[in-house]
Design a protein around this nucleic acid. Sequence first.
DNA 1: GCGATTCACTAAACCGGTCTAGCGACTGGG
DNA 2: CCCAGTCGCTAGACCGGTTTAGTGAATCGC
Lengths: 346, 346
Amino acid sequence: MSRPTIADIAQRAGVSKGAVSFALNGRPGVSDRTRERILRVAEEMNWRPHSAARALGGARAGAVGLVLARPARTLGVEPFFAQLLSGLQAGLSAHAVALQLMVVEDTAAEVEVYRRWASEHRVDGFILVDLQMRDPRIAVLEELDLPTVVLGGPGRHGRLPAVWADDREAMLSIVDYLAALGHRRIAHLAGLPAFQHTQRRIRALRDASRRLGLDEAVSVPTDFSDAEGAAATRALLARSPRPTAIVYDSDVMAVAGLGVAAEMGVPVPGELSVVSFDDSVLTRIVHPALTALSRDTFALGEQVAGALLGAIADPSTAQDLRTATPRLTVRESTAPPGLGRPTKSV
Amino acid sequence: MSRPTIADIAQRAGVSKGAVSFALNGRPGVSDRTRERILRVAEEMNWRPHSAARALGGARAGAVGLVLARPARTLGVEPFFAQLLSGLQAGLSAHAVALQLMVVEDTAAEVEVYRRWASEHRVDGFILVDLQMRDPRIAVLEELDLPTVVLGGPGRHGRLPAVWADDREAMLSIVDYLAALGHRRIAHLAGLPAFQHTQRRIRALRDASRRLGLDEAVSVPTDFSDAEGAAATRALLARSPRPTAIVYDSDVMAVAGLGVAAEMGVPVPGELSVVSFDDSVLTRIVHPALTALSRDTFALGEQVAGALLGAIADPSTAQDLRTATPRLTVRESTAPPGLGRPTKSV
DNA sequence: GCGATTCACTAAACCGGTCTAGCGACTGGG
DNA sequence: CCCAGTCGCTAGACCGGTTTAGTGAATCGC
């Protein structure tokens, strides 16, 4: 016999299909003695549930969906995303829930996938990332009425629960640190302007600069790519006077910027301090190692997974979850401005 | 009405469920006129197939499985893996097939997931990566009798079809290039010794060294992490005489090695040439930019996806597919040995 | 012109579970 | 002692598709 069904078990145990179903799912309706016998038979026959059959009856699909609208080729360069994925996996697989992943070209295609997976009962919930300014996906996901957790906040995300860290507070801590070192001309290589967190960081930097009486900070939007990171750094360093510190919204851009500084003969951290908003192995393997905001992206992924599983189990409990504010890890790429060529002993 | 079923369409079009099924799946059994009418009604009602119901009847699940046995946290640091994933996605989503991804702790758990997904009809096929020396997973996948494509070869992988690039040839081209530059002491930071491709590269390096009359090459096994890459580099550079060139099995390790060289005051490429076996954005954003083997990992992913979809459509057509041999991209990290401190103009 | 074949379509079984209605036996309260 | 309620279980509908057997009508061959 290829694959035993509950009917086979029922026959062998001398009970009905219904009794087997009750026993296997731990619900009332059978006596303890019978339950035990059924479980033993199921074990003997090496029975496994048929996920499709379960899903047909309106039950769980046993998977959650994550759809990313990016050019597929750029996925590989983002340590942040890869770490997040790892954390999600860890959180989900502990509960034997799989992750359906799909990368699409644009937001329209993304919405299409949401609709398809929902209508096909393929997933029990969604994870929404890369929140945009007026995000059209929120209305769609609300309409589909499947549990969804948004990564990012505290911006508007309709009735969907969110998991977020305080970007604003994080940016303020960076500016405070740089100002304490004596920096007055701080530049910012931002990400895609359509993203909510990009705008929040830009605003936080501007506010902090005013409060501390620094020069007006410039924020340059980019597409997060190493190419734009390098180009924008080149442009900033060609200015006069040039900034004494640059804050990068991603570590890939920060590393690219480091390369440009070396190429242009600008010593880091002697004449330019570099701070990355993301921390990953990248910031540690370059020289000088980068001062960076450490957020535990892996843990973040786990928390998102947990929040989503909770929302699936009981949608009424869903609520926003604020995670620990990222803390600044000081390494070798920051120093007081105008030190000139650093010596090894400094 | 929440979700139209074929019964709804049948009623509206005034035909039977069976006729609707025939029409929607493009199989004979209905006239062209009727087929067209049914399709129009389905379109109007915005009908979508219920994947679970389909799978129940023994049809396709519409997803393929990829299971990785690694500590989840290390997933994030591998550009190779992320690129591969992107390519897989691209190849699969073009055919509306989803990727079911799961990261587990060890091979035993991995095998367990294969069994579960197969018995639950959750996937139509598998992708097997990180081929080991005597890989226990092959027998399991053959037994499960689901289409599977192996990434890596041409080692033993039973009856399963494989997609592979010629690692041996690639390593030979690196050694030829370094030997032509004048290097005679070449070291190799290898990956996990249990992997087939690690052994193939080690053997290729040794063979090439003998053939070219170079000093016996040393291959140091690592776990692919930046930490071991740095530690092993430090040990190699402390030797006397130290190697004049190091070949790294991954770009993360190569970048880490670059940092160690800088820290120890060994100029690259003046006194040490560095070659990476993997190419990604990483190799381009560091200074000096790394000479690396360029394989189009994204395209590789697409090819694997294509091979698997082909095997699912018709298992008898499955056969090994050898992809283009990676070519060496020469950048700034390689030069003739013993040049001393390089000048900008060289 | 008549049987054989083809065609378009219907009715119903089927996949493997879940879930509800109902039934007989037992228990408890008054 | 009788009726109501609970317990343990069964029979069978049901989810939304696919697939097969069968039916009536049209077409074909000779």
